[in-house]
Amino acid sequence: MNFNLLIENLTNPALLFFVLGIVAVYLKSDLEIPPNSSKFISLYLLFSIGFKGGQELSHETLTSEIGWSMLLGISISSLIPFYTFFILKKKLNVFDAGAIAAAYGSVSAVTFVTAVSFLESQQLTLHGHMVAIMALMESPAIIVGLILISVYNKDDSQKIQKRAVLTHSLTNGSVLLILGSLVIGFLANAKQAEGIKPFTNDLFKGFLAIFLLDMGITSGRKLKSFFSFGWFPFVFAIIIPLINGCFFAIVSSFVTSDITNRFIFAVLAASASYIAVPAAMKITVPKANPGLYLPMPLAVTFPINITIGMPIYFLVVQLF
């Protein structure tokens, strides 16, 4: 493995702020980011990525490669929850297995944002259509997870409100904002985009660092109670994302030869949702345990991906 790349990633200021957040929790510090500020920063990051992606997309030509890439993204989001459900069901009940499988099939917008920052550190630029693919991958996993719960659920008192979750998975704020920003960025001409460039570009890394500080604080708090569930969820949250990321880093080569696209596919396959899926499961599968499907993606998988995962996926993409 390229240890220089790993060390460079581990000394990234944004990542170190994430570590600072975890340290603050264990030192019992009163450090925290106000909830309204945290929400604003997350909205800003999604807006910035969406808008810049739209600008990039406006300079791209719609090709069969982009069409196949979109199909691959949807396939990844549908396949991962299907096979992980049966692994999880060996140790967990149907409701927890379905909720966790949906989380690992869906994507983390914050992991995606961090991956974009990683690419920039390698002097590489994200292609605009990958933003659209990321947004498309949010919902299929939720739907597959709920179908699996419905099929294997023997408790008639715990039937799923399918219409509610379908509506939520297609209209939740993160998907709507990033797709809307993508369309606006696509429609805006270069002169119009230049007017807000200081906001969309220059402030991005600073806001990302503060947001990861907040994520570190949240992760540190979730980890405390998470270890009470035993070794299986913890090992799953480490191993499965790394396998998914490396596998689809290789598989994506059949669709695109572009290193940045393949790296993003690997990161999306390895990431897990801790915003959209928990919100959907809280509404539709109240019997699923949020003490599992929330800290697994946030407190274990997210740190693994942004520390050692991304350098590994980048190396696999280069080797294969």
Rank of each mutant, 00 (worst) to 15 (best):
I7Q: 06
H127V: 12
I142V: 13
A24N: 03
G173C: 08
A188C: 14
S69V: 04
N153D: 04
I217S: 02
T114W: 00
S64I: 15
G230S: 03
I312Q: 10
I264D: 01
V175S: 06
I160N: 02
G173Q: 14
F17S: 06
T200C: 11
T307H: 11
K39H: 12
L45K: 06
T171V: 09
G128F: 06
P278G: 06
A24M: 10
L27Y: 13
F236Y: 07
H129I: 03
F47M: 09
N93W: 09
A14N: 05
A269V: 11
L223S: 09
I80A: 03
V165R: 07
K90W: 15
I306C: 03
T256F: 02
S69P: 01
L292S: 12
L176H: 05
S225P: 09
S78F: 14
M215I: 13
F17C: 08
E32T: 14
G54T: 02
A270E: 10
G195W: 10
K159D: 05
G145Y: 01
L46R: 10
L124H: 03
T63G: 11
V235I: 15
S37V: 13
G105W: 12
H129K: 08
T114R: 11
G21S: 10
N261W: 00
L27E: 12
L43N: 10
S169L: 14
E60K: 02
L319S: 07
H129Q: 05
P140K: 00
Y83N: 05
T61H: 10
F95E: 01
A188E: 05
G73I: 05
G50D: 03
D30I: 03
K287V: 15
V113A: 14
I312E: 13
N305C: 13
F263S: 01
A115K: 04
A188Y: 11
G50L: 01
N36M: 11
V144D: 05
F232E: 07
F204P: 07
M137Q: 04
A237C: 06
S106E: 01
I312W: 12
S77C: 12
I238C: 05
N12Y: 14
P35E: 10
M281A: 00
L242Q: 07
I160S: 03
I210W: 09
L166Q: 10
T167N: 11
P198G: 08
K91R: 14
E138W: 11
P35S: 09
G291R: 12
L62F: 13
I308F: 15
V25W: 04
A237T: 02
T260V: 12
K52P: 04
F234P: 00
A141W: 12
P198I: 08
P81G: 04
N201G: 08
D155P: 11
V94F: 02
T218L: 14
P241W: 14
K282R: 15
I33Q: 06
G173A: 09
F211Q: 06
A193V: 07
P303F: 00
V151C: 02
P198L: 10
V19C: 15
I143K: 02
I243V: 15
D202F: 13
F320Q: 01
L213M: 12
P241K: 02
M281C: 03
M134K: 01
K224T: 13
G21T: 08
V267R: 01
A103V: 11
K205E: 15
A190T: 12
L20D: 04
I312V: 15
A141L: 11
A164T: 12
K52Y: 03
K282N: 09
F302K: 01
N36Y: 08
